[in-house]
Design a protein around this nucleic acid. Structure first.
Lengths: 348, 348
DNA sequence: TCCCGAAGTTCGATTTAAATG
DNA sequence: GCATTTAAATCGAACTTCGGG
């Protein structure tokens, strides 16, 4: 490996000067253009690449951000990570992505590894997370700018980026209501999942305001599970059960897109066509939803935006730290959007 | 931050001794148990964590492996990366994942960044890659153990892990043939994509051996595109075109699962039911395939296995480098498996 | 004081060579 | 020579200080 000293020797200057020139440090303005030229030529000729370890050891900077995902196989994560990656790339940061596998020990281990590697900030993608409280403690201790995506936080040391679940719930029910549906089935999220309650609240308040009666026999809850893919399975089973009951319905609101896929499978097996016999609406707008047949109507989360926003927040946080200012925790809640495709239809 | 000197001071020994003890270096066998105890106690008490940058600067090791994916939104990548991540985690390596976005400049930039961070090996996931040749050159220069997943390589400095595409093609056609289908449509991969030719070869050789006639009017090719998601769109269009032709068919072999999804959409819009009116088989077995309605019959690639295998290869490579042995390039080709689900059915 | 450049210290660990009893 | 411990050199870059014109 070629070091700064090799460049110094080759160019005929000291390593100090080389360092100043190549980093364009403040002192560089005193150095004549000829000197700079010679040094830069030598550096290029030798293919000099500064050793990041030596540099970081001295400067305390790493230009690295840690990203922790609770379950990467959850399709919901991918667009978010894309957003994170794109924004960091533009800012010349490198993300280190870790997949926690929904496992507490793995979370702690990875957190330790990231902190050991001196990541300058942390972005936590808390999808399908049930262990929220204790994780927060670990994160607060880390004392670097941290933002959590997907959990409605009111913490004042950890920032958050979330979607307005209540609004999302309302958008879903409103859409079906406008299409004329009155007998609507619901598969709600697991009770212990943070997203579940606000989505339901949005639905209930719309129903109340519009004199829409919610039949308790048509309301089901997803069970708790470590695996986000399980919502497909559960969506299938619960819908199957709903179909078997004597209370008929013309539309179904699924907790998320995976659940909706399971519901569609169940309806289809029961000989019911979607959307002709039953409309189905999901939540999230994962990539597969547009490819499904029928294409899924869903409440779309601005996933990539959320990732980018999170990067913006931690980037500001890093600057605050550099200037030794205190880092304010921000809480951004984004509006979801209704995406109408082919799985919902006007009631005849 | 607490340094090794703090531990030295607290325990009453020199930093040398502390280093020897905490790393369990060879010399540690001369150090009496009492000393070790005291040092370890101090370290724990102070919460000492060695500075990885200082350590790497000296030792030249980073316990980091670079992973480059050409397009992370391709669902095919996720299980592979899971395999990579799991295997590396067990070996106490950290992956640094970069998403090249199918962009040459981004590839070069990320490669540079990874090399600057002294990754000890490189795993390249060449999904949906059209720029193979020139990329190889860059990789060969890097002079660290490198393995490419998804490209059939016969390179002797870069290892590879691939699936047996020819066998996969045969499995697909054989399955349909056994179900009684004789009028079969094909959507082949883009000509410039490495996987396309061998899959077709597998199909053709089976057809020849079994006197199955392949109607040229029923054979279509996916166009080239930077975007793997485009195969859905193209699958839709090409199938639509096939349906419009006067040559009927009872089954369709899609290049991959995305293409199959597009085909199913087109068939469905044409009023044809899958599988009753037309069977459809895909390739890859991405996560969504099991969730589709109908569940997709497909040729399954052992994606997670491939990731783990790649890690095994580079891990051996790293050891070779450490022992200054030459690193042999390995080429492993794994057998795909037919997964029969609901999108194919016996011809009545 | 301004301009240009270099010597020497520092970051935090590992490792070699050497000093003790 | 042996067991036990350590001073000092080293890794590669950045920064502080200083000197000469």
């Amino acid at each position: 490996m070629v070091t700064i000293r090799d460049v110094a020797k080759d160019s005929g200057f000291s390593s100090t000067t080389v360092s100043i020139v190549l980093n364009n440090a403040p002192l560089a303005r005193y150095i004549p253009a000829v000197t700079k030229k010679r040094i830069e030529k030598s550096a290029k000729k030798l293919g000099y690449r500064p050793n990041l370890f030596a540099r970081s050891l001295r400067s305390k900077r790493t230009h690295t951000v840690g990203a922790m995902v609770f379950d990467l196989t959850d399709p919901y994560c991918i667009p978010i990570f894309r957003g994170i990656e794109s924004a960091l790339y533009q800012a010349s940061y490198l993300p280190i992505l870790t997949d926690v596998h929904n496992d507490r020990a793995r979370f702690e281990r990875y957190l330790e590894m990231l902190l050991d590697r001196r990541v300058e900030a942390l972005i936590v993608l808390a999808n399908w997370l049930f262990v929220n409280i204790d994780v927060l403690g670990d994160l607060e201790k880390s004392s670097i700018p941290t933002v959590m995506i997907g959990q409605e936080l009111e913490n004042d040391s950890i920032s958050s980026v979330t979607v307005d679940n209540e609004l999302g719930g309302r958008l879903a029910i409103e859409h079906l209501h406008l299409l004329g549906h009155r007998k609507i089935a619901f598969i709600r999220g697991p009770k212990t999942l943070g997203d579940s309650a606000p989505r339901w609240k949005g639905i209930r308040s719309f129903a109340k305001a519009n004199n829409l009666e919610l039949d308790p026999h048509l309301i089901m809850d997803l069970p708790e599970s470590r695996d986000p893919a399980s919502s497909f399975e559960s969506g299938f089973k619960l819908t199957d059960e709903l179909v078997g009951r004597k209370h008929s319905f013309t539309a179904l609101v699924a907790f998320d897109d995976m659940t909706a896929f399971g519901a569609i499978r169940a309806l289809s097996q029961a000989g019911l066509r979607v959307p002709e016999d039953c409309s189905v609406i999901g939540f999230d707008d994962i990539a597969a939803s547009a490819l499904y047949t029928p294409a899924l109507t869903t409440v779309s989360q601005p996933l990539e935006e959320m990732g980018k926003l999170a990067v913006g927040i931690v980037a500001d946080g890093i600057n605050c730290v550099l200037e030794k200012k205190t880092v304010p925790a921000l809480h951004r809640k984004l509006a979801p959007e209704l995406v109408v495709r082919s799985s919902t239809i006007k009631l005849r």
